[in-house]
Design a protein around this nucleic acid. Sequence first.
DNA 1: CTTTGTGCAAACGATTTGCAGGATG
DNA 2: CATCCTGCAAATCGTTTGCACAAAG
Lengths: 138, 138
Amino acid sequence: MSVHKGEIVTILKSKGLRVTPQRFAVYANLRSRGDHPTAEQILRDLNKEIFTSSQATVYSTLQTLREVNLIREVLLQEGVSRYDANVSPHHHFRCWQCQRIEDVDWDTFPSISLDSLRAGLTVDSYEITIRGLCEDCQ
Amino acid sequence: MSVHKGEIVTILKSKGLRVTPQRFAVYANLRSRGDHPTAEQILRDLNKEIFTSSQATVYSTLQTLREVNLIREVLLQEGVSRYDANVSPHHHFRCWQCQRIEDVDWDTFPSISLDSLRAGLTVDSYEITIRGLCEDCQ
DNA sequence: CTTTGTGCAAACGATTTGCAGGATG
DNA sequence: CATCCTGCAAATCGTTTGCACAAAG
């Protein structure tokens, strides 16, 4: 997923966020990668680049981006939050062995009707988590 | 879900575990309730009863029970592990508001064929997480 | 300039660990 | 009675917070 600089600046501004190098870098990093990194992985990546960023800033940036719905937190591993710049609905595959998490397109499966769910609940979304072994771990 | 004492003792023994009051109590507690408590909630419950148990023991017991597949960890909330004595496949409903987690029977939905998943992956299970508002939170 | 963001270090909350004493089979 | 389990306290890990300084609009 490649995104150019101007686009990211525009997106951030459109959400009313000040465009700082740190925010730019965090969001750009998340947009450019296919996996679902932890805050720590992002921080490590940023510090490989031109400037450095602090832990606190990465965490607060992730929180800010989440609040304006530019990214989302994915709950796919114990103990750590992982982040995903793909905010449109999709499913996840998670490898038992290496814990890798891959996106699975929404239209891989026929849509599920939630009508059969018990009355009383107001349902607005769902998501499938598939577990197995990835290619590398067979 | 009511389970009688002898049954739990038998189950624990069959898994090669020593039957201690603490293990008995943790597993019995988890079996008897419909929700998905955190370690802390279980500890609080146990300490309401006859004897007390320590934090460390509850954590280690949960880990042990998980290893022998008597319980499983459910990843449904940021920052805390929740546990489930229902190890047969089922789905979960989670309320946006109160974070409550309810089991959704496996056969609520038609089975999904995983054949359409990309080649290379060996898939063995899946699970649906449904999000919405529960009855109380409407 | 005013407001918002950054970064350090300290604080936090959930979970884990080392180890001595205690209970189980 | 050998082995495994418990419980305390200290350690660890991910994440958050308070606050002074810096940068953005």
